[in-house]
Nucleic acid binder design. Structure first.
Lengths: 354, 354
DNA sequence: AACGTTCTTAAGAACGATTACAAGAACGAT
DNA sequence: ATCGTTCTTGTAATCGTTCTTAAGAACGTT
């Protein structure tokens, strides 16, 4: 409680204010104020008076009025299924500077994995709260596709779509990605390669299972149902349960996981069971997020190009917003493998071990 | 390429539509349409016709028009400094259901740690793109405080403020939290307790340093500048560098870190240097996020009540939106300690493994 | 001096929703 | 039959901005 009150000294009174008030104070018309503030041509005297009045009143233009008039919000929405998944963090990071450079603000909303949530999101997009949407849906239903197709505002899908759907999208090549992982493991002489997948009724879950089965066949590895487990979600906790089940029913010498969180869960569960990584069991994650580098041992991870995908999707969306007639595009980003400790050269340890 | 085109069969044409179109189709006035759709009283016949017309046209109300008229957006904004920090993920998770239950949608924007970004954010809030803002600023400047004070729309600060500032806020008690960590370590006989802090010109950085110095004095532990290092940010990478510096200049038997990311960095750097955790060096994190549980070994972490703080802040904001005259409140959430492996008793370690 | 050109500024019409107000219909009561 | 009440529906104003149109001023040209 200081004795001196210095409030009101130079306090911009942001209570409320609009063009009319500024105009009245400057002694000009609202049109002129708008023109000056939006960089139209005006006399020097006019410009000065308007600027002063606006400053004095702490004028801030009203977003909804402007949007109503112009039809633009200068916002782009990014919808993610799970804010806890580091792959989405990576996407947010990549997208933010791109949309900012194009003059948009990014707003993030988190949906559940429920397709209905996403339909709601598309609907509310059509209320016009953003100029476009970047959507990365886990599950795709015909209803969701129909909603996206009917959307008045542009949507770019990050992820795969059924082949006949004509929507801008940027997809990963999960199958090839899983193939890279299996190839890497097989080259080390690993034979009992397990898959820890997320729900197979999701787009990534289905793609990763397909890629796994294909790779197992290609490399002529033993295939057995016991080596495949499905977590109830792409989360750490679900991963722990799934891996515990796996270890109860099989003895893999390598585990490929559908994302990095599941892979961290595998590391933990293996450690709890007394198995050494990578000596006894190798672990491969997917998405190549921060979590892969932070894990102990650090995780070999399939880079599905999330950052590139997000970047490409953002550019696609911006182009589409600016030119609604642009042809529909579908991009595929090639995967690569980031090798780290969790699949570390077996030779070093194998020598020691045997 | 199927031979049959079934487009236009029942495709809701969401091109554009407004109350006037719906009204024309239903043969009633726009006012009646609005009334029916917003749950006003209307005859059965009227209701049916309006519903049908709205459905047929795929009518979706325009957000900006509604906002312009009513002054409400039904959105609450949450601004976080770093989407990569798991403590913010925790906050987002907690806040989402609370605002949803109150009928708001949550939009997340990420600011940098630069106070100017946050001032921009407050300004754009005053454009009316949300009904209120939850802000967790890393650095607080007089300008930011002035901007928040002058805001036309309510803001609740998650974090500490200078004592004389009258703004709704929910703060952690970092000092006591650090004290809990030091007490726990001292009770194990650890004496050379180091601090890995974030930048001290940030609010949490300053608070944690103060708490550390106070605790060191209280427990009569040796204090030396070599035991205190400051990372250039609250990130993993900055943490690695800071811990490397620390290990180069001192031999701590315990490390208290200003957040979980820094603590994970400490684990990694200690492992790289050959030190065993917790046998040689104990590590304590802060915020008690998922990262603490996922780390190897799992991290003992000071729970600064982030989830509770976020929850309380959201409730405060909603109350404030609904009653702008409500008295200003400041809450403090008490910290607690979640003990895990990284400070585990050395004896216990042996039991588990044998 | 009359006229056309250019430049500056103002007036007013949108954008699409909500809502106060008024007008008319329906209905029961006296 | 008249009046008052209630219920339903329509008319029109309003939110704050942008932008078209047009009016007026300034200036050069013939």
């Amino acid at each position: 409680m200081s004795a001196v009150d210095d409030e009101g000294l130079r306090m911009a009174e942001t209570k409320k204010s609009n063009l009319a008030l500024v105009a009245a104070r400057a002694g000009v018309s609202v049109a002129s104020v708008s023109r000056v503030l939006n960089g139209g041509s005006a006399s020097e005297d006019m410009t000065r008076r308007v600027r002063e009045a606006a400053e004095a009143l702490g004028y801030v233009p009203d977003a909804s009025a402007r949007t109503l008039r112009t039809g633009r919000t200068d916002q782009i929405a990014l919808a993610v299924a799970d804010v806890g998944n580091p792959v989405y963090v990576q996407m947010m990071r990549t997208v933010t500077p791109i949309v900012a450079r194009a003059g948009y603000r990014l707003v993030v909303s988190s949906t559940g994995s429920d397709p209905d949530d996403q339909i709601d999101l598309v609907t509310s997009l059509n209320r016009g709260y953003a100029d476009g949407l970047l959507l990365s849906p886990l599950r795709i239903t015909p209803e969701l596709i129909e909603a996206m197709r009917a959307s008045r505002l542009p949507i770019v899908v990050i992820g795969s779509l059924p082949p006949d759907v004509e929507l801008d999208n940027v997809r990963a090549d999960s199958a090839t990605g899983v193939g890279l992982a299996v190839e890497h493991l097989a080259a080390q002489g690993r034979r009992r390669i397990a898959l820890v997948n997320g729900p197979v009724d999701t787009v990534p879950g289905a793609a990763r299972l397909a890629g796994y089965l294909d790779a197992i066949r290609r490399f002529e590895l033993p295939s057995s149902p016991e080596l495949q487990v499905t977590a109830t979600g792409f989360t750490y906790r679900a991963g722990r349960r799934a891996v515990a089940d796996l270890l109860g029913q099989a003895s893999p010498d390598a585990v490929v996981c559908a994302n990095d969180l599941l892979a961290v869960a595998a590391l933990k569960e293996l450690a709890a069971s007394g198995a050494r990584v990578p000596d006894d069991v190798a672990v491969v994650g997917m998405d190549d997020t921060d979590a892969a580098e932070l894990a102990t041992p650090s995780l070999t991870s399939v880079d599905l190009g999330s950052a590139k995908r997000a970047k490409a999707a953002a550019k696609l969306l911006i182009r589409r917003i600016e030119d609604p007639e642009a042809p529909v595009r579908g991009l595929v980003i090639a995967p690569s493998l980031s090798v780290r400790e969790s699949t570390g050269p077996v030779t070093d340890h194998a020598e020691v071990r045997s």
